[in-house]
């Protein structure tokens, strides 16, 4: 398994890591680096060194799952690298090769497959109020519980078309449109990718 070759197959790889000079500005501005034991500078350095063993280790680790994808690193890198995008490439390869299952944080991907990915496939939205369960989201507070409970009565007042046909916020997406979205996932490898992750979880 040549991991560098795998990484290069992703169209984003080349642009995400042109030449890192290890200045550490990305780490200085990174919200994940403040919260976790995480250092995007080290990730760039490690991938740049091209040591297969080290790359495999990082693909098996929790480290690549700490980034929050805010992309503040892109704005600041003096060399035009995008550590956040490099992380996406590493995560993709880690999932494709099944290496993510060696990491606790990596194994969380199945939860995202069973929520966000499933939502897209079933209803055509990443997020929808019916699927933001107040019991799973205590941080949303009592107001969310109230809205969640009475949404059918409140939504029209807010100009929304809750579960309606035609245009508008919160409308149901037609089966014909959903079929096209699902077909896109099939043709572009999105479906196969999710099945692979679920199988390896």
């Amino acid at each position: 398994m040549n991991l560098i070759e795998h990484l290069k197959e992703d169209v984003r790889f080349e642009e995400s890591l042109k030449a890192c000079m290890n200045c550490g500005v990305c780490t200085a501005i990174c919200p994940a680096a403040e919260f976790y034991d995480y250092d995007p500078r080290r990730i760039c350095d490690l991938v740049q060194r091209g040591d297969e063993e080290e790359i495999e280790q990082v693909l098996r680790s929790d480290t690549i799952w700490y980034c929050g994808q805010c992309m503040s690193c892109k704005t600041r890198c003096p060399r035009g690298n995008v550590p956040g995008e490099l992380i996406s490439v590493l995560r993709k390869v880690s999932q494709e090769l099944g290496l993510f299952r060696h990491s606790e944080k990596g194994r969380q991907q199945v939860l995202l497959m069973n929520s966000v990915h499933r939502n897209i496939m079933e209803i055509g939205y990443c997020v929808y109020p019916d699927r933001v369960d107040p019991d799973y989201h205590p941080e949303q507070g009592p107001i969310w519980r109230w809205y969640h409970e009475h949404i059918a009565d409140i939504a029209p007042k807010l100009g929304a078309n809750y579960h309606g046909a035609g245009p508008g916020a919160l409308r149901d997406i037609s089966e014909e449109d959903l079929q096209e979205v699902r077909k896109i996932f099939e043709v572009t490898g999105g479906t196969e990718f999710s099945e692979k992750v679920k199988k390896n979880s």
Binding site: V11, S88, V116, C126, G190, V197
Partner: peptide, 14 residues
């Protein structure tokens, strides 16, 4: 698919 893309459950091509 943006939320899925940045949560790494939807590939770039998709």
């Amino acid at each position: 698919t943006g939320i899925g893309y940045h949560s790494d459950v939807v590939p770039f091509e998709t």
